[in-house]
Design a protein around this nucleic acid. Structure first.
Ligand SMILES: NC(=O)c1ccc[n+]([C@@H]2O[C@H](COP(=O)([O-])OP(=O)(O)OC[C@H]3O[C@@H](n4cnc5c(N)ncnc54)[C@H](O)[C@@H]3O)[C@@H](O)[C@H]2O)c1
Ligand SMILES: NC(=O)c1ccc[n+]([C@@H]2O[C@H](COP(=O)([O-])OP(=O)(O)OC[C@H]3O[C@@H](n4cnc5c(N)ncnc54)[C@H](O)[C@@H]3O)[C@@H](O)[C@H]2O)c1
Lengths: 209, 209
DNA sequence: ATAACTTTGTGATAATAATCTCTAATTCTA
DNA sequence: TAGAATTAGAGATTATTATCACAAAGTTAT
């Protein structure tokens, strides 16, 4: 999808962290926070915090800092989280089940509304209150719930097929947990999350330290 | 932990992808591959592939390419995957269960050998063949199995405590799935995996496209 | 009111990472 | 064997991202 104005993707990830701290601060009754406070809580530098925010506007007051609640709202707006996003999961296996049971997504506005699988034995099962549907139901469910986001939680050998099905159903943002490169048209957003690679960064670093 | 020689962390992640493609190619009987083949399979540029490999040595033959199996072995060695790594998981919840049931880690040399939880009701349960132990057993299990790697799969409010416990037990590489910044001494390796932030990158991009 | 202090926002600078371009090695073809 | 084609390796270049340093704006104390 066409991006706004070349914002570093790392910035978006940090905004996510900042927003969680701000929510927390606001809940504790802390009205104003400085870039230093945010930085210390999230493990970055104060300059980085200010630079990240500067991409989007001026949210603070010099000599004072930022209003926690206001900045939280601004960031959530920037991230598109000022509304709810229905999400489809493809693959009702171990990972699909964990994702469905996870309460944390709802706090950020994500609502996993259906899981899809091609194994007839899994159809009709329920993970928390999320029902497992056959792949044939994907297109209709996407339309009914206006789903824009999907998660690939099928084995690597089926990941491309899962992506193709989602795209055909008009989902245009995809997270892929399968350890394989899925190829999509450039107007589709795709992020790969490779858990083994994360562990491998650790083993690489520990190897000859 | 002290790093070797400022290799981009993105390079390590890509090596992981390359190695999976190489394994696959070797299994299919493909003896030599070019940087172009690797690039196309993993979604990067050929120059990037060569540059990544160049950090570590010369593995190819000009005019020919790379021997799939040899390069695979080299990369696995670089990543520290020429041996098995026992892994501890803290938190026997949804995510902990999914990780224990996941077969893919074993292929890369990771062996989740125990899960720990502070909920008495969970102790003794088994996820696949991984047993749930009380937190009090952590130190001894780490010693017995020579565990160096740990995964935090507890709620955010307990993540720092889980990290502190692991470090006390002498684990020195940690993956944190909790959406919070855990603070550790600089000789400890820590990677955060934030699934909600990944989805938020999508919503940010879809927002006003 | 003034001086001392705090903190943002930003242009300049530095560091990091990706891409480009060319050379050298090797194979293939005729 | 000569010439064309392929492909790795590496230095140079460009692009991207993070850090620094400081002026501007605000607050607090005297
Ligand atoms: N479980 C984990 O902790 C974990 C960790 C890292 C990566 N992953 C990756 O996530 C993916 C899922 O892992 P998992 O452990 O849940 O696997 P799993 O085998 O438990 O579940 C996969 C599910 O996908 C379904 N499926 C297979 N092909 C399908 C298709 N074409 N269309 C629809 N459904 C299909 C299967 O019926 C099954 O229910 C894998 O690619 C795995 O490599 C999982
Ligand atoms: N489940 C998911 O798909 C998912 C996705 C993204 C992030 N996460 C994150 O992963 C973490 C785990 O998620 P989950 O869904 O498995 O949660 P969960 O509530 O299902 O499980 C958490 C487990 O941790 C145990 N626990 C709590 N405090 C502990 C402590 N101090 N020491 C040891 N054990 C302790 C609990 O007894 C429980 O069994 C959370 O931080 C969550 O935000 C989970």
């Amino acid at each position: 999808m066409s991006k706004k104005f070349k914002i570093p993707s790392a910035t978006i990830g940090r905004l996510s962290m900042y927003s969680r701290y701000l929510k927390d601060a606001d809940n504790k009754g802390i009205v104003t926070v400085s870039s230093r406070n945010i930085a210390e809580a999230t493990g970055v530098t104060p300059a980085q915090v200010r630079k990240d925010l500067a991409y989007f506007g001026e949210f603070g007051t010099r000599g004072v800092g930022y209003n926690s609640r206001e900045l939280y709202n601004y960031i959530m707006k920037i991230l598109g989280l000022d509304r709810s996003w229905p999400v489809a999961v493809i693959g009702a296996g171990n990972l699909g089940r964990a994702l469905c049971h996870y309460k944390g997504f709802a706090e950020r506005g994500f609502n996993i509304c259906c899981v899809f699988d091609n194994d007839p034995n899994k159809i009709g099962e329920k993970f928390a209150d999320v029902e497992v549907f056959p792949m044939s139901a994907l297109e209709e469910k996407v339309k009914v719930h206006n789903i824009k986001l999907g998660i690939i939680a099928v084995p690597a050998s089926s990941a491309q097929e899962a992506a193709d099905n989602m795209i055909k159903a008009r989902i245009n943002g995809i997270i892929n947990f399968a350890p394989i490169n899925v190829i999509v048209n450039e107007n589709i957003l795709l992020r790969r999350v490779d858990l083994a690679a994360q562990l491998e960064y650790l083993t690489y670093s520990l190897e000859d330290n």
